[in-house]
């Protein structure tokens, strides 16, 4: 693959040329139109949209025994991979799309555009196909092969950003694109869009509260856009004294797709640093060991971000056990493991 600056520039100029040659542009009049009634109705009718959320919460009894935890410490895993697009980001994307249609930002003549390292892009692409709006995604060239092919399967237009610049490089490229061709696009901006955490205030939080019989003591959620922790955490905090644990890679240089090392990354606008009680740093290898153990002990094959959450939850559970505390930990299972098979982490051996 000819990755590098020249490839990036070539793609960039190809994009700019395409934009200039476009015959139809959205006029300002169209841009301020009210909600598109047909699009709104299509959400209500969409089988895909209706199957997002209401995921199971599984108690991991075998994994608890594998970690040697006492009966008083429970681990529960929110199985987000059962969403139709395969990840928790289906909730985020649906919330962002619905809010944008309602506000008139997404309608005829507009393409949804965002930077994504994968799962949100898949969710946008799926919804774009199901609801008939065009989707353009900027994805770091280093995203896993499975993700790239999945996006292509849904028919989304994908622009790859410089793999050496990571997910922040994708964000910067999108910002450049919107400054050149803003009217053609609805920039979904998952890192700064309040509809992202709102998805979890409305759905993930209430589901967890109900499924844990109101007895969740700790929420463990990986930080990428931070929407899951911000929204679910805000809801759970309103219900009771729930400890909110954010999980990030221990190092800036890591292989846990979708996660951000906040001290060295562009910090999302939706992130409120005063909300989490604790931030735990997890090594990539530890995240994969936990994902592998989950597969072998419980039979759930989850991805690396779920592994990072489980590794953090395991560490926390042991601390609570040695302090003699009882706890019911809810761990977010962000996505499934099959999306990562082409990466070196699942090599045999």
């Amino acid at each position: 693959m000819p990755w590098g600056v020249s490839y990036f520039l070539m793609k960039n100029s190809e994009y700019a040329m395409h934009d200039r040659a476009k015959a139809t542009r959205t006029t300002p009049e169209q841009a301020i139109c009210g909600p598109d009634a047909a699009l709104l109705a299509s959400i209500a009718e969409s089988a895909v949209a209706r199957s997002i959320g209401n995921t199971p919460l599984h108690r991991l009894r075998r994994y608890e025994r594998y970690l040697g935890l006492p009966e008083t410490i429970e681990l529960h895993l929110k199985a987000e991979w059962v969403n139709p697009g395969g990840s928790i980001k289906d909730r985020t994307a649906l919330s962002i799309v619905r809010a944008a249609i309602k506000s008139g930002q997404l309608g005829p003549g507009r393409t949804l555009l965002d930077a994504t390292s994968g799962n949100t892009g898949i969710a946008y692409a799926m919804l774009g196909a199901a609801l008939s709006f065009p989707v353009t995604l900027v994805v770091p060239g280093s995203a896993s092969e499975e993700r790239k092919r999945t996006l292509a399967a849904y028919g989304a237009r994908v622009i790859y950003s410089d793999p050496y610049e990571g997910s922040d490089g994708a964000i910067r490229l999108v910002r450049e694109m919107t400054s050149v061709a803003g009217d053609d696009f609805f920039y979904a901006d998952q890192y700064n869009n309040p509809a992202n955490p709102a998805a979890h205030v409305a759905t993930t939080g209430p589901e967890i509260w109900r499924q844990s019989d109101g007895r969740v003591t700790h929420l463990v959620a990986a930080l990428g856009t931070t929407g899951t922790l911000m929204g679910t955490g805000a809801y759970l905090r309103q219900q009771g004294a729930v400890q909110l644990i954010g999980v990030q890679p221990a190092e800036a240089f890591h292989g846990i797709e979708g996660l951000k090392h906040l001290p060295t990354a562009i910090v999302p606008g939706i992130y409120d640093p005063s909300l989490p009680d604790r931030i735990m740093g997890i090594e990539t290898e530890a995240a994969f060991e936990a994902a592998r153990a989950l597969a072998r002990v419980e039979g759930f094959f989850a991805g690396s971000s779920t592994g990072a959450n489980l590794a953090a939850a395991g560490e926390l559970a042991r601390e609570l056990a040695s302090a003699g505390q009882a706890a019911r930990l809810v761990v977010i299972g962000c996505d499934g493991g099959a999306r990562y098979l082409s990466t070196g982490l699942w090599e045999l051996g």
């Binding site: 990755w3 590098g4 390292s117 994968g118 994805v139 770091p140 280093s142 995203a143 896993s144 793999p163 050496y164 610049e165 990571g166 997910s167 922040d168 490089g169 994708a170 890679p249 800036a252 240089f253 890591h254 292989g255 846990i256 797709e257 979708g258 996660l259 951000k260 090392h261 906040l262 060295t264 990354a265 562009i266 910090v267 690396s304 990562y340 990466t343 070196g344 982490l345």
Partner: peptide, 29 residues
């Protein structure tokens, strides 16, 4: 280089050696 000889993969003058984490990650703003 996993498809070649790993760290023993020979280099020629002017080659480009790229280092990329297997997946996307954050970076300095």
């Amino acid at each position: 280089v996993r498809d070649r000889d790993g760290i023993a993969t020979p280099l020629s003058p002017g080659d480009e050696l790229g280092i990329i984490p297997a997946m996307a990650g954050g970076s300095a703003a």
